[in-house]
Amino acid sequence: MNSYLTYANDPILWLLSLPLVAIVGTLAISYSTKVKKVSPLVNLTPEDQRKAFRTGAISAIGPALGVFVVMLGLISKIGGPLAWQRLSVIGAAHTELTAAEMAAQAMGTTLDSPDYSLVNYANACWVMALNGCGWLLVVSLLTDKLDSISFKLTKGDTKITSIISISGMCGAMGFLAVSNAITSNENMVSAVVAGISMILLNKLGEKIPVLMEFNLGFALIIGLIAGSIFRS
């Protein structure tokens, strides 16, 4: 049944995945270096920079933990090299797992099927890659036009820009949260507990400001634990 995993975890695939992962790491370091260089232009002090990086790193703990948990399941289906490569670029474990499952269904099988073969695995590689290309094309073709579109919508009013940005983020994250929460009882428990935790942690953060940086990560971890307990 899992003979294809022998090829999916071949050392050659690890080597082929390494360049793309290395590019992502190099870009992250490059962006960080450039941010430090231009920070004085916007009066961002070294202390502000450290606080911003620390906040981002801490806030990433919760989402990264969620991705790690799903990644374990992804590795068991498509092997370590491809999972490592895809999540280094996209970072959306559920999206990649869904793409792999859809690729299997298109060929009349499933990821858990005994007849899942090397051909099915190769098809999954193509589907996952092409799925990510759509996002890259939109960014490549429209990024330079977003500034003019934004100015036309807001007339240069930064308050309206903030409202639109926050509303868009709330809508996107709300859609993802609800669409996943309604798929199972444990997901619903995780979402509700994480939401309540975030409210309570924000209240606590008003009294202990230093905790505000940790709230998102803590809330997500609490939600994951609550969902796991409910499921077990």
Rank of each mutant, 00 (worst) to 15 (best):
T26H: 15
G156Y: 10
F230M: 06
G62W: 01
W14N: 08
T26W: 15
A103W: 01
V21T: 02
L130M: 14
N187D: 12
K159L: 00
L201Y: 10
S167H: 04
P114L: 05
F175E: 05
F230H: 14
P46M: 09
Q105G: 00
G73I: 06
S228K: 11
G56Y: 07
L82D: 09
T110L: 00
V70G: 13
Y116V: 02
W135C: 11
T161A: 14
A181G: 13
V67W: 06
D147I: 10
D48H: 14
T161K: 10
A122F: 08
N185P: 04
A122S: 07
Q105W: 02
K159S: 04
S140Q: 08
A177M: 13
N2K: 04
N120I: 01
I222P: 11
G156D: 14
L137A: 15
T33C: 05
V127P: 00
G168C: 05
S3A: 12
M169G: 11
A28L: 12
I61W: 00
V178L: 13
G217M: 13
V127N: 00
S228D: 08
I196S: 02
V24F: 04
V35M: 10
V178M: 11
K152Y: 15
L201P: 07
E213A: 14
N215W: 13
A22G: 10
D48I: 11
F175N: 07
D48G: 14
T158K: 07
E213F: 03
A93W: 04
A8C: 01
G227A: 12
F68Y: 06
A100D: 10
S150W: 02
I196C: 09
L65C: 11
L41T: 12
G79V: 09
A8Q: 00
G156C: 13
N131F: 11
V138M: 13
G174E: 08
V24H: 03
I58D: 00
A57G: 07
I163T: 03
S228A: 12
S190T: 15
L97Q: 13
S3K: 06
I229H: 10
V178D: 01
K34Q: 15
L5P: 01
K51M: 12
V69R: 05
G227E: 06
A181D: 05
L20M: 04
F53K: 03
I58L: 07
V67C: 09
L204M: 09
L146T: 15
A52R: 06
V119N: 09
Q85S: 15
T110N: 07
I61H: 00
V24A: 12
M188Q: 03
M1C: 09
P114R: 08
P63E: 05
L18C: 10
K51P: 03
V139P: 00
D10K: 00
G79P: 03
A83T: 13
A194C: 08
I199Q: 03
P11F: 08
S184Y: 08
S59V: 14
M1A: 14
T6V: 01
M169D: 03
V42S: 12
A92Y: 01
L16A: 13
M173L: 06
S197N: 06
L82Y: 10
K34H: 15
L65T: 14
L176A: 09
F68L: 13
I149R: 05
D157F: 03
M102D: 04
A103G: 02
V89N: 13
A100Q: 09
N2F: 05
S76K: 15
S197G: 08
